[in-house]
């Protein structure tokens, strides 16, 4: 599992190219001991990235991963800790364009803070001049829930 591959340096990417090319080229030499580590049978590689699109990866590396899965909603377990209306909007918020995306982490921070100082103050602290817009969207987005 290669987590957040977009953050890998050039050396690591070069190594990954070799590791993911073929069974023969997939080996790693320990720099101090010189030990050669080879993958076991059935070896496979999974990469994760926070990039908007897989094509932003180097073409050679992208070519080694024939399957790409876009995960555009948070895992339900991850939003379970949020209060009801925030959990609901969190499901859609992650799919927004990057310019107006609100991360799950931000929503959690808002949720935590709101327990102490209320929604308005919490939004002001976390979202600054966008606080009203966030609160409006939150109120309208969870309209049915609030009504019932």
């Amino acid at each position: 599992m290669v987590d957040e591959v977009d953050r890998a340096s050039g050396d690591v990417l070069s190594l990954l190219l070799a590791m993911t090319d073929s069974d023969e080229s997939a080996r790693w030499i320990h720099p101090h001991t010189g030990e050669v580590v080879r993958p076991a049978p059935g070896f496979s590689v999974v990469m994760t990235s926070n990039m908007e699109h897989p094509d932003e990866l180097p073409a050679a590396l992208r070519d080694r991963f024939p399957i790409a899965v876009a995960i555009d909603a948070p895992a339900p377990a991850a939003v379970n800790h949020l209060r009801g209306d925030l959990a609901q909007v969190a499901m859609g918020a992650g799919r927004s364009p990057s310019s107006r995306r609100i991360s799950l982490r931000t929503l959690r921070a808002f949720d935590d803070l709101a327990r102490h100082c209320g929604d308005v103050e919490s939004a002001r602290i976390i979202f600054g001049d966008k606080a009203n817009d966030f609160l409006d969207a939150l109120a309208i987005g969870s309209a049915e829930m609030r009504a019932s």
Binding site: A73, Q88, V89, A90, M91, G92, A93, R95, S96, P97, R100, I102, K130, D133, F134, D136, A137, L138, I140, G141
Partner: peptide
């Protein structure tokens, strides 16, 4: 700023195409 993706996040139990 406006957050249509938050306002329209979940409708009828499913995610709507949010890209406004």
């Amino acid at each position: 700023m406006i957050y249509p993706e938050i306002a329209g996040s979940i409708r009828d139990g499913s995610l709507r195409d949010p890209l406004w």
